[in-house]
Design a protein around this nucleic acid. Structure first.
Lengths: 340, 340
DNA sequence: TTCAGGACTTGACACGTTTTAATTCGGCAG
DNA sequence: CTGCCGAATTAAAACGTGTCAAGTCCTGAA
């Protein structure tokens, strides 16, 4: 019984054991951890040695309970199966990991009910802030968090409240870019394949497409709406178009475009000679596509990094922080699928 | 000052306010939350009403501090850019969300240093368990967590300790499947493109490939090692092979295979007529590949779900739980890239 | 020698919940 | 009427850290 196992269970060492081992008071250990500048160099060295020797790990629950704020943030995305969101998550995770924050990952899977459940869980976890891609424009489910003083940054969605941060990419402009380009290649009968118009991205890209037609004063747009934005759904959308082929197809998403491309090629339709095809997102996996896919590129990874930095700034310096609505401009990437 | 704003800041209601509002003691409210069966029906109803009316949200930090265990688990993957891991993460997240657990997402980015940093962070966060794809076979970095009583399930990696759970897919068998199939198509001079052999998956698939050659009593295997498992690296690997083309290429990864395919086609090498090509993982995004890609399919999403369930079982019933090493068998998916 | 003042350090309480032992209460047998 | 039991509830003591007012020690000037 002479072992230094003073910890409660499993040899967990607390701040008290460290203090005893270093011959100082618990308060000093806490100071070493949180405001190292207030403690004398020699004492700090002794405490740090004790921490290392005992393998002390700070109890985050206690810390966050007492301090009223922890070092975790929530990240809620629409769909973990979509490379757009995983790239974005990668950016967020990279920044948070560097800064010592933990990221709680949630997927709403585009379900409002699941979004609400996850937000409640994030509130329970006492997250310091959240990055959210909201499911819909509907009721402000973030209110629950805001009341509790949790900062929020809207991801790929314009701010819904006057003073709130948001990071987005200009989807109207993206739709405009894509369709202008299709018109430039000579296409006139254009089809737009997208998910439900309740998804803001789909609606905005559609609006941009219409603007491009209007500006050009020529061309028509057909709209095929599919329930999901997956390759399979794209394939099914293409089947609908086979009866009367358009000159070009603009997909709200590269995944959809991959499905469309596959269906067209299977039916012997030549791309781009007979039908031009352009997608959206410029995901990496179209690298070895049958016909290299033109697309509208979004700075996805950077989007994640920047929104993470914005959130941390807001959390760590609430007063000096000015809310920002950052909007990136997308970029046209022309490949073979639109270059006859 | 007559408002019921007894909460500390931002109107955060605590268990005490709820108790006062319902005319019971804080202990009873806690019982309603944690062991509802111990409290009389009428009282429970009154408390639940108060919770709803006040918008009470349990403080997870306090709960986890006092109870000694929270409702979060950690998930550490090797590479968030790889669909294999994001599919897996999706499975984990789905299960955990259903069961009311929070998932802390970490990526080690195949860096031992970052793995260690993240594990320390998970320890601080008092996670109840972790799902880990370890970076290497090296020093047991999980010890830090095990000491603190954190359960661990090894993901896509055999258990390193006698009594530990693990969920894997038989990579030796996968390599065997792939190369046997290539031999069946008549290939003899086969190239294996993979990441560093320190990655277990790469090594095991290589071992399986060798076994297949041995069993067949014919054929040779060249080995091209690239630093990363990305399409770009695959492209560069293919350039190395252009001098003396093999009959077939087996890639440790579909991403590599996509890069190889792209490079071969660009150089006018016909696939599969001149070179057969097979990948690994059967990711969704090869759907619209120039030449539909043969691959070795792993039940990735199920892998995630099952390992999550295993971890929860271990956490919630530590005594009744028997450690399991589950190994799935991969499945050969033959498409055009190996079917001349 | 004394004292002011600064640089560190300490001690004790508070955070919101869970948990244990103690209390109340009605009913029922002796 | 008393004593005792079980069910339901309560009061109070933790959990491990952060914070801040109150100390201690040291240096240098009067």
């Amino acid at each position: 019984m002479s072992t230094p196992q003073t910890g409660s269970r499993g040899g967990a060492v607390g701040i008290k054991e460290v203090a005893a081992h270093a011959g100082v008071s618990p308060g000093t250990v806490s100071n070493v951890l949180n405001r190292p500048e207030r403690v004398a160099d020699t004492t700090r060295a002794r405490v740090e040695a004790a921490i290392r020797e005992l393998g002390f790990v700070r109890n985050g629950s206690a810390s966050s309970l007492r301090a009223g704020q922890g070092r975790t943030v929530g990240l809620m995305v629409l769909d973990l199966g979509n490379p757009f969101f995983t790239d974005l998550a990668r950016g967020v995770e990279d920044v948070m990991s560097e800064r010592g924050y933990a990221v709680i990952l949630c997927s709403s899977a585009t379900s409002a009910e699941r979004e609400e459940r996850n937000l409640r869980m994030l509130a329970e976890q006492q997250v310091r802030g959240v990055l959210v891609t909201p499911v819909d424009q509907g009721p402000d489910r973030l209110a629950l968090l805001r009341e509790r003083g949790v900062n929020a940054v809207m991801l790929d969605h314009p701010a819904t409240r006057p003073h709130q941060c948001s990071v987005t990419v200009d989807d109207v402009s993206g739709g405009h870019l894509a369709v202008s380009h299709l018109l430039d290649t000579g296409a006139r009968d254009i089809a737009y394949v997208s998910g439900p118009m309740s998804i803001r991205q789909c609606a905005d890209r559609h609006a941009g497409a219409l603007k491009a037609l209007e500006a050009a004063g020529t061309g028509t747009l057909r709209h095929v709406i599919v329930p999901e934005m997956t390759p399979r759904a794209g394939q099914e959308a293409a089947w609908q178009l086979l009866g009367e082929l358009p000159d070009a197809v603009f997909c709200a998403n590269d995944l959809l475009a991959m499905g469309v491309l596959r269906a067209l090629l299977q039916q012997g339709v030549r791309v781009p000679e007979r039908v031009r095809l352009i997608g959206y997102d410029d995901i990496e996996y179209t690298t070895a596509s049958a016909v290299p896919l033109s697309s509208v590129r979004q700075p996805t990874y950077r989007l994640g990094r920047i929104s993470a930095e914005l959130l941390l700034e807001e959390c760590e310096d609430p007063d000096g922080h000015a809310h920002q609505q950052i909007m990136f401009q997308p970029e046209l990437v022309i490949r073979e699928s639109t270059a006859p």
